[in-house]
């Protein structure tokens, strides 16, 4: 599958593209599983923003991964297999895929699917849950993305083109912050 190809390939441009494809595949899976909102988001994010950011990064750094020894990967494999084993063990007692009797579908879900239209008055239940029932989660989401902006601005600077052209590159604010070494 795509994911495995990513492990092997050393050209990071290809990796980026494959990641995009992986995201699109995931998005189509979401549609199959009735999660249209999520699919839209994943497509926009995975194939859009993520790719642009990665390409931007690669343009600024390097697109070739270097060869290095492969000795230390055994430990990683062990950790991964333990984790995977834990996950499989966890799934053994789970309700089956699509099972309508699963507690997840009998406890709170009916409230959202049956009553949200009455309580909120809009048909898209995802929006109702998102914005109203779990409004603080979504506020958190907005703050997370905002925090990312703050973080990236702190680390990389604003990238303003005009200001940079006017100033001497050395005095450019974005270049400060990390470079004077103690």
């Amino acid at each position: 599958m795509v994911a495995i190809a990513i492990v092997k390939i050393r050209n990071l441009f290809a990796v980026t593209m494959l990641t995009g494809i992986y995201s699109l595949l995931a998005a189509s899976l979401f549609v199959v599983m009735d999660a249209v909102d999520v699919a839209l988001t994943e497509a926009a994010v995975g194939a859009g923003i993520m790719i642009i950011l990665m390409l931007g990064t690669l343009a600024l750094t390097t697109s070739k991964e270097k060869n290095h020894g492969k000795g230390q990967n055994l430990l990683a494999l062990v950790v991964v297999f333990i984790t995977g084993g834990g996950l499989i063990y966890g799934t053994l007692d789970m309700p089956h895929y699509g099972d309508p009797e699963a507690p997840a579908h009998t406890h709170l879900s009916p409230h959202f699917t049956q009553e949200s239209v009455d309580e909120i008055g809009i048909p898209n239940m995802v929006t109702s849950v998102l914005a109203s029932y779990r409004g603080i989660d979504t506020l958190g989401e907005a703050v997370v993305i905002y925090a990312a902006a703050v973080g990236v601005l702190l680390v990389l600077g604003s990238g303003a083109v005009r200001r940079r052209r006017k100033d001497d590159p050395k005095a450019n604010p974005k270049a400060n912050g990390g470079e004077e070494r103690s």
Binding site: D34, D37, M50, T57, H105, T113, G140, E141, I145, V152
Partner: peptide
């Protein structure tokens, strides 16, 4: 209907994922 709650959670989680990726890549650039 399918259960809308996980959809909502994942919407949020995807956003969180983007935020982390952006931050991580910014650090890589630095």
């Amino acid at each position: 209907y399918s259960n809308p709650l996980p959809h909502v959670l994942i919407l949020t989680a995807i956003v969180v994922g983007v935020a982390l990726t952006a931050m991580g890549l910014a650090l890589v650039v630095r």
